[in-house]
Design a protein around this nucleic acid. Structure first.
Lengths: 149, 149
DNA sequence: TTTCATGTAACTTACAGTATTACATGAATT
DNA sequence: AATTCATGTAATACTGTAAGTTACATGAAA
């Protein structure tokens, strides 16, 4: 199953932005991410609607964080990305008439809900600040390392 | 994100097989599932390799359960399907050089592992027998209902 | 020998994330 | 005012995977 890596990607972008003084252009962020500027804009546009980042056009323009690192959790970003489904497994038929399938959906659904709830609960506990702290710790261990990608 | 419904589908098939006296052809199962016989064969072939079902060719041939309903869990079937990934979310880069991405992967990875472990633990607790019992209970409530699809 | 059913390769379809191109919009520089 | 830089966004193509389909080979029972 192909996986959705937008959350992973946008976290990478946001933390790079946190390390930069001043705005970052979608082109420079795309270089770091080894992807296309339009992909960056598309993803960050969603975050802007949730007030997580700001953008400015023209000379000296680009993207900035709009909130304190402490106040943003992975869950907030997940929501800003449109709350994509977190599970790769699903029901064959969502509202089956077959009683067998109803029993199957019911049992699997409980397991799915528990796993999804756990994952989202974990996401709520992880802030951008905690990721940034972890990054700076890795920098200290690996002295002289280049962090710009 | 498109979801993998093979586990859901195969459970449906296996429980129908449990209700049938004698072998079931892939064509009859495909009718119940409103899908193609080849899809059924493809999925059941994996289960046969794990000893969960048996197949016979020719007249009077078809598919049979090879194990007791009590002894087969959703986890066993999940494995027989090739242990597909259960999460729709993933890392952008699996082994990043960037320290920021390493911090991101580490934090997200822990949450992913916890959620996946919980889901698989739940799967280990659900047997075909428990699903069958749930089905027969639904039959009793819904008297006269047709369960063949 | 015919019929029935599995076994399997090859191909097509459907879908969503990702990537790319092209051009419009708007702000700062000159 | 013209140029340059950067975002905004539509349109399109690429990619990987589950699912569906076609075609034919294999083997067992009638």
């Amino acid at each position: 199953m192909k996986r959705d890596s937008r959350l992973s990607g946008v976290l990478h972008v946001l933390l790079h932005m946190a390390e930069i003084d001043g705005p970052a252009t979608s082109e420079s962020l795309a270089d770091m991410m080894q992807t296309n500027p339009v992909v960056i804009r598309r993803i960050l546009a969603g975050l802007r609607n949730q007030g997580l980042v700001r953008s400015e056009k023209g000379h000296g323009g680009g993207w900035r964080l709009a909130k304190d690192l402490e106040s943003v959790t992975l869950y907030d970003i997940h929501i800003a990305l449109g709350s994509p489904g977190v599970l790769a497994l699903g029901h064959r038929t969502e509202a089956p008439g077959c009683l067998i399938e109803q029993a199957v959906n019911n049992a699997m659904g409980e397991a799915f809900n528990a796993a999804e709830a756990l994952l989202l609960a974990r996401f709520r506990e992880i802030t951008l600040a905690s990721l940034s702290r972890d990054f700076h710790q890795r920098m200290q261990v690996c002295t002289g390392s280049d962090h710009t990608s």
